[in-house]
């Protein structure tokens, strides 16, 4: 990024009408654009055919939408998506929400927020209650996100918990999972802080973006206003180590404040906020209709 600055020396004040100075050896439009486009994955400066897209752009959008639609339909496969090592290290297992299949999951978020009776029995039997940190992995709307991010983040969270002397609950996975499942986990296991790692709805650019929702002592009836969020965990978004650092810092804040959600604000410096590889904190107040 410092390279970007050095390539644009001495921009005069009031540069709006500086075009007459173009005789000097100044960076070309193309040079400026090639530096700046590195700062965003957005589809900027793509050109046009009249007021429409160029054909190549049109078809690229079409291909990406097709990939996203296909990603939504994929089902969670514990060994393939989390990896044998991680499954064995943590003794991971999968339980179901109250949804019977993917179609019901898409149409009935209320069922995706509840653990099935069988799931509740299994969790009670397998997971010691009262952990300082309980991690749950949910497929959400992208198994691709779980496959690409969850195993690493889970491992790093366990290490971070150990380094702080926190008890780390027996983690597990929930198939056809919505964010509201946090409340059932809280009611069942009474952990201090629950972190739900869940696949975000695929975008066109990224089908593998993971979110981490935090809740302090979640209970039935809690809403997103009582949750914190670190989102956009993927290759060009929030890196794994940065995500884990932020999740752990938020967990510490929640434990200190004995609450979570809107009352707990993550603090990051403006310098950090201006850098693409170290984005800021989560958005606790939900926009309408995330994986909710």
């Amino acid at each position: 990024m410092s390279g970007a600055r050095e390539s644009v020396p001495g921009v005069p004040q009031g540069a709006a009408h500086a075009s007459t100075t173009a005789m000097r050896a100044e960076p070309s439009v193309e040079a400026l654009e090639s530096v700046l486009v590195e700062h965003t994955p957005a589809r900027v400066l793509v050109g046009e055919a009249g007021d429409a897209y160029r054909t190549a752009t049109q078809l690229e959008l079409r291909r990406d939408h097709a990939a996203a639609r296909d990603a939504v339909r994929r089902e969670l496969d514990l060994h393939a998506d989390l990896g044998l090592d991680v499954v064995q290290r943590f003794g991971l297992f999968v339980v179901d929400s109250c949804c019977r299949d993917k179609d019901e999951y898409l149409l009935r978020p209320d069922l995706g927020r509840r653990l099935s009776a069988e799931a509740q029995d299994r969790i009670r039997g397998m997971c010691p209650p009262g952990a300082d940190l309980q991690v749950v992995v949910g497929d959400g709307l992208s198994v691709a996100a779980v496959a690409a991010q969850a195993a690493t983040v889970l491992g790093m969270l366990a290490d971070a918990a150990a380094a702080r002397g926190w008890t780390f609950g027996q983690p597990f996975c929930v198939r056809h999972c919505r964010v509201g499942v946090l409340n059932d986990v809280g009611d069942l296991l009474a952990p201090e802080v629950v972190v739900l790692l869940i696949g975000e709805r695929p975008g066109l650019r990224y089908a593998d973006s993971l979110s981490a929702y935090l809740a302090y002592q979640p209970r039935a009836g809690h809403t997103d206003a009582e949750r914190n969020l670190v989102c956009n965990i993927h290759e060009r978004g929030v890196a794994h180590d940065a995500a884990v650092a932020r999740i752990v810092a938020l967990a510490e804040q929640c434990r200190a404040a004995r609450t979570s959600g809107i009352a707990v604000k993550e603090e990051l410096s403006a310098v950090t906020a201006a850098r693409s590889n170290e984005p800021g904190a989560p958005a606790p107040a939900p926009t309408i209709g995330r994986v909710g």
């Binding site: 970007a4 700046l36 700062h39 957005a42 956009n232 906020a273 201006a274 693409s276 606790p284 107040a285």
Partner: peptide
């Protein structure tokens, strides 16, 4: 990324967009 945000903004201005508002949904709530 503020530069990325500004680049998208400039791209939009060059299409005559942005009169209603230049409005960013932040990824971060900090």
């Amino acid at each position: 990324d503020v530069r990325g945000i500004l680049l998208s903004t400039v791209d939009g201005l060059l299409f005559g967009c942005g009169d209603a508002v230049i409005g960013v949904n932040p990824a971060s709530e900090s």
